[in-house]
Design a protein around this nucleic acid. Structure first.
Lengths: 189, 189
DNA sequence: GTCTATATGTGGATAGAC
DNA sequence: GTCTATCCACATATAGAC
């Protein structure tokens, strides 16, 4: 094992959680995947609840970083929004995977309070970013038909998550494209 | 038990699956809920896989019936579309529940082939209904900004499922309303 | 059709050696 | 930090009595 075990465990758990849900993977799965024994996992994450918290925190931080990177690279509302669509498309992994917080939403009852709070703040973060980006797109004229940025942001967040879910349901990434097509038609190139 | 046991089991299982996912409930839960013993469930549904098939089939049939009822009661595209939004809002049950096929999408790997096929045909059915309804709304002028009914249908299906998921994630039905507000603004009364 | 009893596997978690 | 060994609760499922 060249990279450190804790990271390898988080990577494996994230893959598992995003493809099969929180109740769909076990310490045995992670052990087999990473190449250590079940019991050894408890040294890094004493409980599955603790693992889920670490997982969600790392995921939220990663997405926040990507949003910041998009802003650093792209200047127009349209280019930034296209960047976020790319992020959600990429997270799909060919229709086999979901955004972690989409996947976790179904398993809500099995998750500790901390994760629920983390999901909530994650969604707020993306919502704010979307609102600001729609606002920018309206100002710079690169996104059409923006009435009220906040409403567009709410609808777009649901659209992106729903598009992932639809594609996942049939393991067909083309369904993601169908769902986001109307949004993309509002982009001015 | 006044109503028949099989129906009571399906009712209980549907509630459980839609609030906790397919991997989130057990025969023990159903037994406690319905008031019989675990073993007795196997008389009605030999395996959990068989139960999941019966569950999805009944659900799909029910939604198809509701769509037909909406068409029978309402004549305009707007009124019909509003009826479907109501259906998805109602399925939310205050932010605690999801459409069965939304909930099942995450647990895809645990489900038998038959259920996957059933989910696929269910989505096709709703998609076709949406396409026809957007087409009608464009013709009768009760839904604005319909460019291509098929694209609107794909986006709307994802929007409705995503809106449910968002509301479920925070157990807050107001988030569903935020997400569908833009869609509703296209309704001409 | 429902029960008791049980089989068999797997879940997350712990103790203690190395 | 990883291992073996083990615990206990719970999962789905079966056998056979009533």
């Amino acid at each position: 094992m060249s990279i450190d075990t804790k990271t390898a465990l988080l990577d494996s758990a994230e893959r598992a959680a995003r493809t099969r849900g929180f109740d769909g993977f076990s310490y045995a799965d992670l052990a087999a995947d990473v190449g250590i024994r079940k019991a050894s996992i408890h040294h890094h994450f004493p409980t599955k609840a603790a693992l889920s918290v670490a997982l969600m925190r790392r995921y939220a931080g990663g997405v926040e970083q990507v949003c910041a990177d998009i802003d650093a690279v792209h200047a127009t509302g349209q280019a930034r929004m296209a960047g976020l669509v790319d992020l959600y498309r990429g997270a799909l992994d060919g229709g086999k995977s979901l955004c972690l917080c989409v996947s976790f939403s179904t398993s809500r009852e099995s998750l500790p309070e901390d994760v629920i709070a983390e999901i909530s703040s994650f969604r707020k973060m993306v919502f704010c970013w979307l609102t600001a980006t729609f606002d920018l797109g309206r100002m710079d004229g690169t996104i059409t038909a923006v009435l009220e940025p906040g409403k567009d942001a709410a609808a777009t967040l649901s659209l992106l998550e729903g598009a992932q879910l639809t594609a996942r349901a049939e393991e067909n990434p083309a369904l993601f494209e169908n769902a986001v097509q109307l949004l993309q038609q509002r982009f001015v190139h």
